[in-house]
């Protein structure tokens, strides 16, 4: 419809960009609140082990340290991706996104192994209040990461099809923001759950 009119409102479209970004920031704030509640529950229940194993006995320093550095690196590479995008290099952009996805996948893999190991030691979500809150907090973060991975792959496919244009640019920016945000949340999981746990 009315193809000719497209140029009339270029300004309008630009406005829409910043709308999306503001909306997404606000969404991130609401997601912060979600994690805040999960942290609050964890803080209240962390001593409720009901006589079972505590965090100190369950958490493995090597495992969670590896997870932390991998996620940190992926946050960095997703930043490099957005840098490549602003330079206009599609190949680099797709490359860095691919690296980010691989790092993300290995993070999720490590987390699943960690959960499985804990479960085989008898530490399950059903065991006690402490573990219930642990698995919901860390698991919710893991679900967020998995969701982000699917999303990022979807964005990569779209870049493949349509190159870097205003729409795909916006998508890369937003998914990148999401990815950095998940890294920030993980810093607190790393500190509050794991470091305080093994202390």
């Amino acid at each position: 419809m009315a193809q000719s009119a497209i140029s009339v409102d270029a300004h309008h479209e630009h406005q829409h960009d910043t709308f999306k970004l503001l909306g997404f920031w606000i969404f991130l704030v609401t997601d912060c609140i979600i994690f805040a509640c999960l942290f609050a529950v964890y803080a209240v229940l962390r001593t409720h082990t009901d006589g079972d194993l505590t965090g100190r006995e369950l958490f493995e320093v090597k495992g969670f340290t590896a997870e932390t550095f991998i996620l940190l690196a992926s946050s960095f590479t997703s930043g490099l991706a957005s840098l490549a995008m602003h330079k206009g290099s599609k190949k680099q952009l797709l490359g860095w996104l691919a690296v980010t996805v691989l790092l993300g996948l290995s993070f999720v893999g490590l987390e699943i192994t960690e959960f499985a190991n804990m479960a085989s030691e008898g530490a399950k979500i059903t065991t006690n209040g402490f573990l219930s809150s642990f698995f919901t907090l860390v698991g919710t973060h893991g679900l967020h990461v998995s969701f982000g991975l699917i999303w990022m792959i979807g964005v990569m496919v779209q870049i493949g099809r349509h190159d870097i244009d205003s729409l795909t640019k916006e998508k890369v920016t937003i998914v990148g923001l999401y990815w950095h945000f998940l890294d920030v949340v993980w810093i607190f999981i790393f500190t509050v759950v794991y470091l305080l746990g093994v202390m």
Binding site: H48, T126, S132, T136
Partner: peptide, 18 residues
């Protein structure tokens, strides 16, 4: 729902819930 579906102990009166 996690309590009800997965049998967790977050808000239960037993098993260290609150």
């Amino acid at each position: 729902f996690v309590d009800r579906f997965f049998g967790a102990h977050i808000f239960t009166a037993t098993g260290g819930g609150n």
